[in-house]
Design a protein around this nucleic acid. Structure first.
Length: 327
DNA sequence: AAGACCCCCAACCGCTCCGGA
DNA sequence: TTCCGGAGCGGTTGGGGGTCT
């Protein structure tokens, strides 16, 4: 028993599309529309799978598509919506005219995830790493806490190392701790540099664990993210804990908050994760067609899900401003 | 100059969803 | 109500181009 293939693979061309194929597909669709993708390649004279044609059309050839870079506003929207609906790219893309789910997904995976990690925010839960550490620390017995930094390092080290070792600016590092030049400065060994970075991360995580209350009591969630994470993890040079390495604006810098950071800050970063779970549950209830006692309606009412009294997450657009209702 | 490495993004794969019979 | 086929979705891959060493 195998799955029925969507087309005969033997007679089907795969890989990059040629301009000629694009022309054939575009002109066929212009004449006949996009009904029945299975028949389209045959009728258009293309040796392609119908699915491949659909993808090519929806992700690339459609005349209403934008192909340029994502704007700040678009990025904000993606991050905000992702914090609420998770990896539901088609839902997110529906709020961004001219962008496809593939575009959004790619942009998230290649840019935004790193951007958030660089700001000390876990891109999955949208919580600050330091807060996650502190939360875990408060739930563990002391002997376990002792191993937390090590374990956490295992979880986050790829992102951290990527950010810290790859794009390091040694001058920044020296400015941060002028009296404690890292040992690798005088060494040619990349391994030394990496080990040093790892030790620094461990130290920072340990501090985060030792002071969970301070982290949790922060009244400004954002302050406990990039800035405090950098503070708790003294190993992090300011230039790395912020995200101006990626662009002109800086998150860690108090006096220089981009619209991005402002909108991120207005939401309850530190509680977004819990609320996200609740929203996910509500969403699922909505999808299953069951009105929950307290929320099903809001969920199906599109953007109002973002403004229910107990679920205010971000300064998301109101109903009127969302391009397409969610769900 | 050239090979290694990295990043981005188009395209593919396989699963789920949905609507019609 | 069930089944089936088409469409949609999200995860993953791989190739091409750029950068680094």
């Amino acid at each position: 028993m195998g799955r029925i293939p969507c087309c005969e693979k033997d007679n089907v061309k795969r890989g990059q599309w040629t301009p000629e194929e694009d022309n054939k597909l575009s002109s066929y669709i212009a004449q006949h529309g996009t009904r029945n993708w299975r028949l389209i390649p045959k009728n258009a004279g293309l040796q392609r799978c119908g699915k491949s044609c659909r993808l090519r059309w929806t992700n690339y050839l459609r005349p209403d598509l934008k192909h340029g870079q994502f704007s700040d506003a678009e990025e904000q929207t993606i991050v905000k919506l992702h914090s609420v609906v998770g990896n539901r790219w088609s839902l997110i893309a529906a709020q961004l005219p001219g962008r496809t789910d593939n575009d959004v997904k790619n942009h998230w995976n290649t840019k935004l995830k790193k951007k958030l990690s660089g700001m000390g925010i876990d891109p999955v839960t949208h919580k600050p790493f330091s807060h996650l550490m502190a939360e875990i620390a408060t739930t563990l017995a002391p002997p376990q806490v002792a191993h937390l930094a090590e374990a956490a390092l295992g979880c986050f080290k790829d992102e951290m190392l990527h950010l810290l070792t790859k794009k390091r600016n040694i001058d920044d590092f020296q400015n941060q701790e002028p009296n404690a030049a890292p040992p690798y400065i005088n060494s040619n060994s990349k391994q030394d540099e990496k080990d040093y970075t790892i030790e620094k991360i461990k130290l920072g995580l340990s501090r985060a664990i030792q002071e969970p209350d301070n982290m949790l009591q922060s009244t400004k969630p954002w302050d406990s993210t990039a800035a405090n994470f950098a503070g708790a993890c003294s190993a992090f040079p300011a230039s790395m804990s912020g995200y101006h390495q990626y662009g002109p604006s800086s998150f860690a810098n108090e006096g220089d908050r981009s619209p991005w950071s402002q909108s991120m800050c207005t939401g309850s970063t530190c509680t977004a994760g819990d609320q996200q779970v609740r929203l996910h549950e509500k969403l699922l209830e909505g999808e299953n067609g069951e009105d929950s006692d307290e929320g099903g309606k809001e969920i199906r009412n599109g953007s109002s899900m973002f403004s229910t009294s107990d679920c205010v997450l971000w300064d998301l657009p109101s109903d009127d401003h969302l391009i397409n209702p969610i769900v």
